[in-house]
Amino acid sequence: MQLIVNGETTQVHDGLRLTDLVPDPRGVAVAVNGSVVRAADWSRTRLRDDDRVEVVTAHQGG
């Protein structure tokens, strides 16, 4: 199965869930195909072939 993660194409196994891709939700936001997914829903969110996943990490500083 193929995903596009932060603009990069990557091959992963079928049935991958968001928690497999991003196991720790602290300081992280994830959108799948343009829709933000709540961290509480990551374990139930199965990814599909050609999904576009954006993972954004918060950083301190200014």
Rank of each mutant, 00 (worst) to 15 (best):
R44P: 04
D24M: 00
R52E: 12
V55C: 12
L18R: 02
G62R: 09
G27N: 00
L47A: 03
E54Y: 02
G62T: 06
A40C: 09
L16S: 05
R38F: 01
T9L: 09
D50V: 10
D41G: 03
G15T: 09
A29I: 09
V36H: 05
L3N: 02
G15I: 03
M1P: 06
V28C: 08
A39T: 12
V5F: 01
H59C: 09
G61A: 03
R46N: 08
Q11W: 10
V36N: 03
M1G: 05
D24V: 03
L21Q: 06
T9D: 03
D20Y: 02
Q2Y: 12
N33P: 06
R52C: 01
V22K: 01
N33T: 01
E54F: 02
H13E: 14
R52F: 00
P25A: 10
M1V: 10
V5M: 05
D50R: 15
W42L: 08
R17V: 13
M1L: 06
R26F: 03
L3V: 09
D51Y: 05
Q60R: 14
H13Q: 11
V53A: 09
T9I: 08
V56G: 01
A31N: 08
L16G: 01
D51G: 11
D41T: 06
W42E: 07
R26S: 06
V55I: 15
S35K: 13
S35D: 13
V53P: 05
R17N: 09
T10A: 13
V22F: 00
V36P: 01
A40M: 06
A29Q: 02
P25T: 07
I4W: 04
V32T: 02
V37H: 02
V22G: 02
G7E: 11
S35N: 13
R48T: 15
D49P: 07
V22N: 00
D51C: 11
S43W: 07
T10P: 00
D41S: 12
H13Y: 06
R44K: 15
R44T: 12
V22L: 03
G61T: 00
T9K: 13
G34K: 06
I4C: 08
D14A: 13
